[in-house]
C-alpha cells in the first residue's frame, strides 16, 4: 500500500493535456492505475471508448508507454495476442524485459460487446490486468443504456417518459461473473478511493494470471452532477453500499471498505440528474426496490466474507 507522497513521485504514464471532460472519472482511474503500474514496463490495450478517443487524437498521444487500440469488442482478445507474442518472443530471445499488460475498457466494451472476448481471455489464463472503467452507460456515444446501467436510471435509450421510468432492469453483476471464471484476482472499487485502487492494481499485477478490477466511475455528463463532485459521488456509492468495495483473492472474499453507517440510497440518487425522476412520490416504489437490492447484496457479500474467513480458504 503506497502513501500519497510516494505515489506522487512515481512516473506519470498518462500525461495531462488529453481531452477528457473536466471532472472525468476515467482519466482519474487511468492515471492512478498507470502510476501504480509504473514499476515495470507496461503495455496497454484499450477498447474503443471515451478513454481511447480522448487520449489519442492523432498525431497526439497522452500515453508515455506502448499503447494499442483496434476495436470496441476485442480489447481482451487483442491483449491476448500481445501477451502471446510476449511469451513467444521471450522464448526466442527477442524480448528480455519483464513486461506487464493492462487492458482498459468501459462498461459497454466490457459488460456488453466485449464480454465474450473478455471471458475467453480470462479462461485462457493470459497474464493481463483488465480494468473496467464503469460509468454505467455508453457515455462516448451519448449516454445509451448498457447492461451496467442501474435500475431506474435515465439513459438516452432508456429514457423517462409518460409511460417509462428509466431503465426497467437491474444491472448485470459483472464482478460476480468474473469471480465465476475462477481467476486468481478479482477486485471492485470506485473513484475516490485512490489507495484502494492503486493497492488492487499492484496486487493484480503481481499475480501470475488473469486479473480483473471493476472500477465505478462517476461521469459528470452522463450522471448529471457538478464536475467537482466526481470523487464525492464515488464515495457515496460506497457509503450507501450501492457499490461495495471488495476483492476476491483465490476465491476468498474480503470487503476492503466497510461504511460505519450505511447511508440511504436517496443520498446518492438525489445528486444525479439521471435519477431525478425517481425522487417524485409516484416513483417511490422503484427507490424501495433499489434499496432492497442493495440491502440484499450487501448481506450476501458479508456472508461471503464470513464464509471465506470460516473456511479459512
Amino acid at each position: 500500500m503506497a502513501n500519497l507522497k510516494e505515489l506522487s513521485k512515481r512516473p506519470e504514464l498518462l500525461s495531462g493535456g488529453h481531452r477528457l471532460c473536466a471532472g472525468c472519472g476515467a482519466g482519474i482511474i487511468a492515471r492512478q492505475v498507470m502510476m501504480a503500474a509504473a514499476d515495470k514496463p507496461v503495455v496497454v490495450a484499450n477498447a474503443t471508448g471515451c478513454l481511447e478517443v480522448s487520449t489519442t487524437i492523432y498525431p497526439f498521444s497522452a500515453w508515455k508507454t506502448s499503447w494499442f487500440h483496434s476495436a470496441f469488442e476485442n480489447a481482451a482478445a487483442s491483449c491476448s495476442g500481445m501477451e502471446a507474442a510476449y511469451k513467444a518472443l521471450k522464448r526466442t530471445g527477442k524480448v528480455d524485459k519483464d513486461i506487464r499488460f493492462i487492458t482498459f475498457g468501459g462498461d459497454g466494451g466490457t459488460y456488453d460487446i466485449g464480454f465474450q472476448s473478455l471471458s475467453g481471455a480470462m479462461e485462457r489464463r493470459h497474464r493481463m490486468l483488465y480494468v473496467c472503467y464503469n460509468n454505467e452507460a455508453y457515455m462516448n456515444t451519448g449516454i445509451q443504456r448498457s447492461s451496467a446501467t442501474p435500475l431506474g436510471a435515465y439513459a438516452s435509450t432508456s429514457p423517462v417518459g409518460k409511460v417509462k421510468k428509466g431503465k426497467e432492469q437491474i444491472k448485470k453483476d459483472l464482478t460476480k461473473v468474473m469471480v465465476a471464471h475462477n481467476i486468481p484476482y478479482v477486485g471492485q472499487t470506485a473513484v475516490g478511493y485512490w489507495n484502494d485502487l492503486t493497492t488492487k492494481v499492484q496486487k493484480a499485477l503481481e499475480t501470475d494470471g488473469p486479473t480483473f478490477i471493476n472500477v465505478l466511475q462517476p461521469c459528470r455528463l452522463g450522471w448529471g452532477y457538478n464536475p467537482a463532485d466526481t470523487a464525492v459521488l464515488g464515495r457515496l456509492a460506497v457509503e450507501t453500499c450501492f457499490w461495495p468495495i471488495y476483492e476476491v483473492v483465490d476465491g476468498k472474499y474480503k470487503i476492503n471498505v466497510k461504511p460505519k453507517e450505511k447511508k440511504p440510497i436517496t443520498e446518492y440518487l438525489k445528486l444525479q440528474t439521471r435519477f431525478k425522476h425517481l425522487l417524485r412520490p409516484e416513483n417511490a416504489g422503484i427507490v424501495a426496490e433499489i434499496q432492497k437490492n442493495i440491502d440484499e447484496n450487501w448481506a450476501w457479500l458479508q456472508m461471503m466474507e464470513e464464509c471465506s474467513n470460516k473456511a479459512g480458504v
Binding site: 483496434s70 476485442n74 491476448s80 495476442g81 502471446a84 507474442a85 518472443l89 465474450q116 475467453g120
Partner: peptide, 16 residues
C-alpha cells in the same frame, strides 16, 4: 474468429 484475428492483430502489433 473475431477474437482470432484480433489476437493476431495484437500479436503482430506487439512484434510477432
Amino acid at each position: 474468429e473475431h477474437s482470432a484475428l484480433s489476437a493476431c492483430i495484437g500479436a503482430s502489433a506487439a512484434g510477432a
